[in-house]
Each structure stands twice: as C-alpha cells, then as structure tokens.
Design a protein around this nucleic acid. Structure first.
Lengths: 344, 344
DNA sequence: GCCATTGCCCAAATCGATTTGGGTTCCTAC
DNA sequence: GTAGGAACCCAAATCGATTTGGGCAATGGC
C-alpha cells in the first residue's frame, strides 16, 4: 500500500560519481575530507550531487563506520510508569526537548527508547552510539549492560549503588538541598521537615542524607516522611497532616510537585499559611499556577540536558566540546517561602 | 577515550554460522522464517546464537531491506519554539511518550527529529521508515518533501492548505468545539466569545470556523479575539479585558492554557466569576492547579498518539493493526463552567 | 638523468545482514 | 526405473557507503 507509488529511487554515491565522471571513492573523499581531491574535481562532484539531490545514506555509512549518528534517551520514569503517570512532567519534556535540540545541534539524532536490554526492545536501540539514562535506579540493569558492552553512556543523577563518577552528570542534590534549607531558615524556619519519595534513586537518597547532615549541623531534630511517588496529592496531604500534627514544624520541603500540592491544600485548610513555609524540589507549571504559588527548585533540565548531551557526544566521537554551564538548581521564590515581610 | 577498552566485538551472523556448522544463509533463514530449515538445524543455530549472545545488527539489516525499524516524530511547536517555550506542555510530552510506547510495542523505535528537510538535519533523520508530524503549519514544507519522496507519513491535525485526508489523524476540532460551546450554553451562557492563537494551523482555523457556524446557528453575534500563542498570560489577560469591556460576554473559550490562565486572572480581579464561564481548549496541569480550577478539554494525546502510530506503521509495513478508539476530546468540567448550581 | 615525493584518482575489499539462484538428497507417483 | 517435487542447504550477489592499497603523472632534489 505504501510502496505502489513510482518512488523515484534516491540518488546514490554511484550516481553522483557517474554524473561527475569520477569514481565513487572520489565522491566519498570530497564530502568526508579524507584523501586529496583537486578543487576543480570537488566542484564537479558537488555540482553533480546538488543536481541529483544526493544525501548520503545514514545506514550504509553507519554500517561501515559503526556509528549511526543517533544517541538514545532512556527516561526511566516515563518508560516505567507510562507517559500519563509521570511526575514533574515539565522536567522530562524539557529534558528530552533540550537533549534533542543539543543532539541535533551537533549533527546527531535523539532516539527515545525503552530499556534496550529487555528482550522485546527494538533492535535498533542497540545500534545507538551512546546512551543517556535519567534517574537510574539502584543497581540499574541497563547501566550494567552498557558497561559490559563498552557502550558510551552517561547517567543523569548517579546510580546510588554505583561508584563511577566519570559516567554521571551531577545534579548537585546536596548543594541544592542546602540552598533550600538555608533559604527556609533565612525565612524564619525553626524546624524544617522533608517529604521524599520511595523510589531508590539518588535524588531521594541524597536529599535525605543532605537534610540529615544539615539538621545535625544546626542542632535540629530531623523529621523525614517517605511517601511513594505515585501516591500523588493524597500522599502529600497525608504527609503534611502528619507533620502539622507535630506542632513544631514551620517549614516543609517536598520533593515532588504532587506532594507539594497536596501539602499546600492541607496547610491552607488548616489555616497554617503563611506561618508554615513550603518549597518543592522540582518546579512545574502546576506549582506556579497554584494559589498561593508555591516556591520551587528549578532543576534547569535544559542546562542539564545540554551538559549531558555534550559530554556523551565527546565520549562517543572523542571531539572535545565547549564546557557546560556550572549552574545547578535555582530556587524560584514565590508566595510560600522567604522572608516573612515579603510573603503573603 | 571511549574505545580504549577491549570491547568484545559483537557476534555476527558468520560467527553463529561457524559455531553451528551451517552457512550464514541458514542462520538468516532460521530467524526470518524465510526458506526452509530443518528443526534440528534450527535448534543448533539458536543454541549457537544464544551462546554467543547474537543480536542481528539493525544497520546491516536496514541497509539491505531499506527498513530501519524507526519512525520519526516531528513536533512542530517543540522544534520551532524550543522546549521551554512550548504551550500546553503536557500535550506534547504525553503525545511523545505515548507514541514512543506504541512504537516500541510494535517493535519499532521512535526518533525525535527536527525537520529533516532542513540542511543541517542529521542524515539519519531521512533513514526513518515513516514520519509523524504534529500540528503542521499551512503548506507545511516537510509534508511536501515527504510526499514527493513517497515516504510514509501522517500528520496529526491537518495541514490547513492541503487536501489529503488519507494522511491525517483527525483531531476532531469541529466536534470538540461544538461540545464545548454546547456545554457553555448548557451552563447558561448567552454570549460566548473565543480566544484563538495566530499560528496558521488547523486547530486555530477550524475552531474559529466551527465557532462561527455554531454562533450563526444559534443567532449569536460571533466574537473572536486572536492572540499570538507566545503572548502567554499577558495576551490572555488582554483579550479577556477586551471581551469583558463588551459587557455582554458571559462565557469565554480560550484555546491555549496560558491564555486561559491570563483570562482567569483578569476575571477574578474584576469579580466576574462565576458569572462569566471559562473553558480552555487544551488541558494542562496548570489549569487543574489554578484557583479556581479551570474547565478544559482533554485532547487525549495518548489515544491520538496510539492511533497515529498504528496507522503510520500500517502505512510502513502493510500490516493491519487493531482499530483505534474512536474517542476524541473530553471536557474536564471544573469550577469555571457548567450548570450554575454546580459551580463555585 | 634518476629517484623520491606529492598530488590526484581509482579498483577492490569491507561492514553485516538479506535475497537470489541454484545444488543435493530423498521420496513419491507413474 | 525414472521424472517431478519437496525438503534442505549453500555460494554469491546485493544494499550504499568508507577505507585500503596501489597506479600514474608531475614536480623537486641531487
């Protein structure tokens, strides 16, 4: 049904060679820069190529050089939970979009793939030149496979069970956590509690660790509530209920947007605003649109994606690329946190 | 730097053939089902393949059969405006995620690409077996190229300047528009106005057309405000200001989430809620989280993506696939619309 | 004048699969 | 007993590029 049209066969390198009156080797050299080709000949070749609308076949080229020109993006949460169940939606789209743009900027394509080590994964997944894995889980199976096969890869956020900082894009969780906590203290908080998720990823674990260290440093009694990521707003509400019943908590740091929204709803009902501060660990549209707008950490997925893509490509083709921005996580201060005289 | 490890060369079909004591032809036939291979031989081949961890090389296979096993997704808005400027964020991620899952489900990969007809596009973009183009613009250049080359493609939403319904996934804009308008009328609206975008895509144009037809049918005077998509909330606010100054408008249908949010802000300030109803044409987290929560059309991107992917794959490989759901657009009624006795 | 170098170009091998076009056997039917 | 067909297997061509290993002039150095 698709192929009954008189599809005009794409021009090959042979066609160009014939038309320019040279060998295919010369055509190849003209475009790749290998070998030496007289200027006049080059012009003839290019003219012929233009006339025929020649574009080299990525597959044939890839077969020979074993480089396809595509990197793979494996977004754990999206793959595992399905697109409609993704938390912090903005983060993953922004990451994927920016990574795609960055890859394209360097002449590569970006492929969205499931875990290629699974049996039913499309074979082409394995043909990718490198892999970007967001939020690896503990002892991530895919990372193990990639390591064993010597395939270039980078994880965004570390695998908590792994010690390979050379293949990790640091999301600076400790730094960010400290910043948020200091910000809350600066806003007058005497007792900060945190709501983290239950997935075994570095974000959850490192946040909790950094929080405990901070609390110890300041002589606070740590107070951590763990709620499954998928418990959504109900989970956040529940956690906040627990925390507010404590009576001493005057600031909450919730990692996921859903939990923060749930917490906000409860705080509002109980009339605890603006006394209790609230900051969310991953910014999202929904936080900005909430009433009152919730302060949140912008994880800067674009910057992260750009850095990750560039570093991965260097791993892939050995070409050094401009250093990425060292920026990491910025607090968007809204109505639910900050100095007392400035909040609602 | 990446290749100094003693990468164990991947097993080829020759290796398997040697180990099983057969020719490579037989190995190929064993896996493809072509030709005839004795059961005993098949077992030997499979055993050898397993032992060597053989997986066919997608590139080599693709070169011969000119089918890579990858479909391309071109999301116009994301490509053109960049990931952080995307309107209706949820829609595009949900679409991309669902399309990726659907493709994977059928053994294909999904590649995120920029317009491959551009000069600087990665060559591999052209190697894809089929193309999904969301929200084509008027006289979309890419669609023209694909048509000319006879490459299977589908657009989600029609190109307003084109008459090729066979390559379009219908987003049922007329139907949805009627539903929304009826819903508003049902909620008591006597005069409905719409805020549409200025991009020349079918969504904007068809919505306006359907609205005008509806207004004529009911004897209303049509009232349309066009605001650039990128004017964001300020644009929505401005439009709403214009509309409310009219005095007779008691319902607004705004297509983009940003415009709806801007409109809401203004209505709230002017104390026009709940007298003036408000519905948004594309659901998003931010609408749900707004106060009061804004009614909106869920365009069901997952269903759309699933249908589009399946239809495209049928175009690609000729294999008929299960019929998609005929469902299109569902109104999530929240606080800003509906029967008077049920709203805030 | 001769050898070495450089510039320019090409034929053939290669990448790893699929597909074509036969070859063997072996069985059945007449 | 032999022709015709399955059943089974393989060598070689093919896909469209890159890469290797020369070949042939013209140039330069001695």
């Amino acid at each position: 049904m698709a192929s009954d049209r008189p599809t005009p066969r794409r021009a090959t390198i042979q066609d160009v060679a014939r038309r320019a009156g040279v060998s295919s080797t010369t055509v190849s050299h003209t475009f790749s820069g290998n070998g030496t080709v007289a200027t006049a000949t080059q012009q003839r070749v290019r003219a012929a190529a233009d006339a025929l609308g020649y574009r080299p076949d990525a597959l044939a080229r890839g077969l020979r050089s074993s480089r396809l020109g595509v990197i793979a993006l494996v977004e754990r949460s999206v793959i595992d939970f399905g697109p409609h169940a993704v938390l912090g939606v903005d983060y993953f789209l922004r990451f994927a979009g920016a990574a795609a743009l960055a890859a394209v900027d360097q002449g590569y394509g970006l492929m969205f793939v499931p875990d290629p080590s699974e049996e039913d994964a499309p074979m082409v997944a394995f043909a990718c030149d490198g892999f970007l894995v967001t939020e690896p889980t503990s002892n991530d199976h895919l990372l193990t496979t990639l390591e064993r096969h010597g395939i270039p890869h980078l994880s965004v956020g570390r695998d908590p069970a792994r010690e390979r900082p050379d293949t990790v894009v640091d999301i600076a969780t400790e730094l960010i956590t400290d910043r948020v906590l200091d910000h809350l203290a600066d806003g007058g908080a005497k007792r900060v509690a945190v709501i983290v998720g239950t997935d075994e990823n570095a974000w959850n674990l490192d946040t909790e660790a950094a929080y405990r260290a901070w609390a110890v440093r300041l002589g606070h009694e740590p107070l951590v509530v763990r709620q499954p990521e998928r418990s959504d707003e109900a989970g956040g509400r529940e956690a906040a209920e627990l925390l507010s019943s404590d009576g001493t908590v005057d600031a909450i740091y919730a990692l996921t947007a859903e939990h923060a929204l749930g917490a906000l709803a409860l705080l509002r009902e109980r009339g605890l605003l603006p006394h209790v501060q609230l900051v969310c660990g991953s910014d999202a549209e929904s936080l900005r649109a909430a009433t009152p707008a919730i302060s949140a950490v912008d994880l800067l997925p674009e910057a992260l994606a750009w850095e990750a893509t560039m570093r991965l490509l260097t791993l892939v083709d050995g070409i050094e690329r401009p250093a990425p921005t060292p920026d990491h996580g910025r607090i968007n201060v809204r109505r639910t946190s900050g100095r007392r005289d400035q909040r609602g």
